[in-house]
Amino acid sequence: MTTDPRPEGRVLDAGALRALAHPLRVRLYDLLSQYGPQTASGLASLTGESTGATSYHLRALARQDLIREVPGRGTARERWWERPAGAVTLVNPEMASTPTGRAVMEAVHSETLTLRQQQLMTFVTHGWDEDEQWLDKSLISTASARLTVAQMAELADRLQAVISEDRFPLPRSNRRRPPRRHDARRRLPPARRRTHIMTTFTTPLPTAPRALAPTTFDRALLALSHALARFAHARMLARATRLSMDRARGTARDNGRSLVAEAEFTLRVR
């Protein structure tokens, strides 16, 4: 799954992006992308969700052709699901032109990057338990460079070509064996392991991000919120005034009663 529009593949439309804008669906889609065909029950054990929940979300993804049933495999009670081969992009230019479309894309990007961050932090936390040769060759690096648009595109294309699946294919023997949980004692065959490669090419954001022009509905909603705030403030002042007046009346009544009681007591004594 990629957010870069350059790789050839499917550009997700509005329906597919809305279907994917859910934390569990993003995780299911990612697991199928990484480990190949899985069942709803198998994915439930990997995610900690119920089989009913994973089955429901798998069907929602299938309705948008994000995943499909594995032909000739499975039974009526347990179906196998897979992600079609090929790159996809989460950037849809048509949706980017509207606030609602941007919100949907931002939700999918947020869930995807959150998942990548969790995977990275798992390595940071448990990477010390890896074999020394694998730990020594692992790399987390950042860099900044002054590039033109053409240079940035060239560098991205070159890296994309290097890390393409055709260049470094995963043996099919490992495709259907995702780990259920991290276990330092569990060792994969030393010849080849699944490796997470995360690349980002971004330009620095401006100090103040450009805000979208407010719509008529936005202005009306803002005016209504201001009116409600003024009304609530006026009610609070009126209530405070009434409470002050009630306290003043109560104090006066109490003082009057005290004077009357003192006078009656004086008369009785005399």
Rank of each mutant, 00 (worst) to 15 (best):
L159I: 10
E111D: 14
R146Q: 12
A143W: 07
L120I: 06
Y56F: 13
D166G: 12
T122I: 01
Q64D: 06
T98V: 12
L46P: 02
A44Y: 01
A44F: 03
S164C: 15
E111P: 00
T39R: 02
T47R: 02
R83I: 06
S138V: 03
L147K: 01
M121G: 03
A53Q: 04
A62H: 13
G86E: 09
V162K: 08
V70K: 08
A153H: 13
R116D: 03
L120D: 00
L147C: 01
G74E: 05
V108T: 00
D131E: 14
P71R: 12
S55T: 03
A107I: 01
L90I: 04
T75Y: 14
G72Q: 10
T148I: 04
I163H: 13
G36P: 01
A40I: 01
Q119P: 00
Y56P: 01
Q34L: 06
S97P: 00
D157A: 09
L28I: 05
Y56Q: 10
D166Y: 12
A150Q: 11
H57C: 10
G52W: 06
G72A: 08
T98D: 14
M121W: 07
T142H: 08
Q64Y: 05
D157F: 14
T47P: 02
N92Y: 03
P99F: 13
L28W: 00
F123N: 00
L155R: 05
Q34R: 14
I163N: 11
R102L: 06
A161S: 07
P84N: 09
R27Q: 05
P37N: 09
